[in-house]
Write a protein that binds this DNA or RNA. Structure first.
Lengths: 107, 107
DNA sequence: TCGTTATATAACTATCCGGGTATATTGGCG
DNA sequence: CGCCAATATACCCGGATAGTTATATAACGA
């Protein structure tokens, strides 16, 4: 039962989650979107499943994979004490650049 | 040049960062605190260094390691679109629990 | 200079991991 | 029942990786 940190160490699995963020998808659809072999996709999905990051819904032979973001809260909790720190650095940098700009986020 | 995700996949390296969050530490001090062999600690510190997560300050034979939280912002940025999602789930759960506790009007 | 301290690197090993091919499983359809 | 579609699993391989022991580097102190 790997923790989210280890499951998300692989960039392909992060891309899978990014795909599922929009809507549930079929296993084959995911593999195709990322240019994976069929067993390759299946194995990555298994890791995400065992990490609790995705749920599966069966429909005949098909498998609908959908995101479960709950385990990401663990990463976020680990990260939270640091967040204050880099914000401080960034604020200092911004002050130093004496140029007021708003940051960009949320694609 | 491993990204923070891969550097932090290892729990020992997360513990190292947690140690450095309080204050800079000597390499030997870190290894001792975590029960690592001396080369073991040194190699983990190298990975964190190459990921940009720690900086080193030389003082004679000693090496003071200090945290640089900047690369964690990358993880945080990846995480941010998901944060909204699990918050929604938790909020929904809370609402459900509140309704169940207070009165019974909506199943 | 010599020895000691603190840390890094080298070399070796066992293990894990991601990717690929081949095969098994399951369900729908004729 | 036989065939196809969708997915999972088994097995193999090459490369990364964590851990250990041995050695190198660098700086201090006597």
């Amino acid at each position: 039962m790997p923790l989210p940190f280890t499951a998300l160490a692989d960039p392909t699995r992060r891309r899978i989650l990014d795909l599922l963020r929009r809507r549930p998808r079929l296993a084959g659809e995911i593999g195709e979107a990322l240019g994976l072999s069929q067993p390759g996709a299946s194995k990555h999905l298994r890791v995400l499943r065992e990490a609790g990051l995705v749920r599966v819904r069966r429909e005949a032979q098909r498998r609908w994979y959908e995101l479960d973001p709950a385990p990401l809260a663990e990463m976020d909790a680990w990260l939270s004490p640091y967040r204050r720190m880099w914000r401080e650095s960034l604020d200092a940098l911004e002050r130093h650049l004496d140029e007021g700009r708003d940051d960009e986020e949320e694609p």
